[in-house]
Amino acid sequence: MKMKKLTLIVVLGFCAVSCKKLETKSEFVDSSDKNIQIQNVTYSPNNPLLKAANDDVMIGAAINENRFNNSLYTNLAGNQYNSITAENEMKFANTELTRGNFTYGGDQVVLFAQNHGIHRVHGHNLIWYTSNPSWLANATTSGMTTDQTYRSIMKNHIRNLIFHYATFKNPDGSFRIQSWDVVNEAMDDNGNLRSCIWTQKISGEAYTYIKLAFQYARQAAIDAGQPDLKLFYNDFGHEYSKTKSNAIANLVNRLQNEPLIGGKKIIDGVGLQMHTSYTRQVFENGNGLANVEYGIQTMKNTGLKVHISELDIRGDNTNINNSTAIGGQNYRYFNIPQLYRKIVPVNQRWGITLWNIGDGDSSQGPNNTATLYDTNYNKKSMYQQFYEGLNEGLQI
């Protein structure tokens, strides 16, 4: 399939800065979602902002407060996006270094969003199998069993973070933290729940700790006055392991069927991290291999909000000028947002979040050239491909 196919764009009005487009829908979208008129800004090398590419797709970035002393970084982070995620600052190891004593480094990220008029922050994350403080391995509580101790620790940790970040408000009174990754990466590539501190310490089946985390999070949100806080399960591998993608779908569907708390389901959405590479298969070709299309479609079918939550696309780290790799990155940066728009109805979209800003900030390392900007924060060819994948009529 070619990266771009000629499509008919219906011009609804003329404006020197922007134009309206008819967003093409697919057979996967309910008829009620068809023919939605959206005001987008077509790509221009003079003033293209990712957040202006498509009003129906929020575009976020994970950012790190350690980069805030670089004005090139902060100018891009503050202007290009309408959603922000803290890369590391809200994780367990960084918020509860000693038991019961909380530090909130993520405040700097939330304040950054506030100071730049960004009204949505996505919390990442509450419970994970790794990035935990050393004390968590052998915690005890007088008069409590191990199971009771770790349930108490989990509940206390979740409640503290949700309550604390519920205090940050937008000028209109809405909550700045609108969503959380409640549980992160609980599944291995074979579709099994991985063994971790929580499965080892909390009694019952491996699923029990995940259910508890979401129950604690929903109750905390209600008690903090934020009953509509969106609660996500977040994981990687949807696009390269059908077994894992199917298992994640089964997991989140099971969570959807748990008893309501305060009239609310305990889960609202699922995150596909999408740390992928220039060689990963994009489309379902009937050959049984996992691919991006299958992963997005499988998560859409759960009926939950769908968040591409940590997007980056690795190149060839042995040759950053490899034209094949660059072409593969361009192809994927165009087609991933196209697939997201094709498959996921507007009312299920939580948006696409890119994992940090430039190659020098990337968790993949600078030689993988995985982001939209080079180490000097110059736009790469992938930038325009991603923008146009968001903005142009569907071509797949």
Results as ranks from 00 to 15, higher is better:
178 Q>S: 06
195 S>K: 09
187 M>Y: 10
193 L>P: 10
175 F>E: 00
201 K>R: 04
208 T>R: 03
174 S>T: 10
212 L>D: 15
202 I>C: 12
178 Q>K: 14
195 S>H: 05
181 D>A: 01
181 D>F: 01
207 Y>H: 04
179 S>C: 11
188 D>Y: 11
208 T>S: 11
188 D>T: 03
202 I>H: 06
186 A>E: 01
188 D>H: 07
195 S>A: 05
189 D>Y: 08
184 N>A: 06
210 I>F: 10
194 R>Y: 12
203 S>R: 11
181 D>I: 01
209 Y>N: 05
211 K>T: 01
183 V>G: 02
185 E>P: 09
205 E>G: 13
197 I>T: 13
201 K>E: 02
176 R>M: 12
193 L>G: 01
176 R>C: 12
210 I>T: 01
198 W>T: 05
201 K>H: 03
182 V>C: 09
212 L>C: 11
174 S>W: 07
206 A>Y: 15
175 F>S: 02
190 N>C: 11
191 G>K: 03
199 T>S: 13
201 K>D: 07
191 G>Y: 13
208 T>W: 03
194 R>K: 15
197 I>R: 08
185 E>T: 02
201 K>G: 06
206 A>K: 15
198 W>H: 13
203 S>Y: 10
198 W>V: 09
188 D>K: 01
189 D>F: 07
198 W>M: 10
178 Q>T: 06
194 R>T: 14
212 L>A: 12
176 R>F: 02
200 Q>T: 00
183 V>L: 09
190 N>P: 07
199 T>D: 14
205 E>W: 07
207 Y>W: 12
187 M>I: 04
197 I>D: 02
201 K>N: 15
203 S>K: 03
181 D>V: 02
209 Y>I: 05
189 D>M: 13
195 S>W: 05
211 K>I: 00
187 M>F: 10
191 G>Q: 03
194 R>S: 13
179 S>R: 00
202 I>M: 13
192 N>M: 10
182 V>H: 06
196 C>G: 15
201 K>M: 04
180 W>M: 06
174 S>R: 04
198 W>N: 05
200 Q>E: 10
194 R>E: 04
197 I>P: 11
179 S>H: 02
190 N>S: 15
189 D>V: 02
204 G>K: 03
175 F>Q: 00
197 I>E: 05
191 G>I: 13
177 I>N: 03
189 D>N: 04
206 A>I: 04
190 N>G: 15
204 G>D: 04
176 R>Y: 09
180 W>C: 04
189 D>A: 11
206 A>T: 02
205 E>S: 15
204 G>V: 02
181 D>L: 07
192 N>S: 14
200 Q>D: 14
181 D>R: 01
174 S>M: 09
209 Y>F: 15
191 G>C: 12
203 S>T: 01
177 I>V: 09
199 T>V: 14
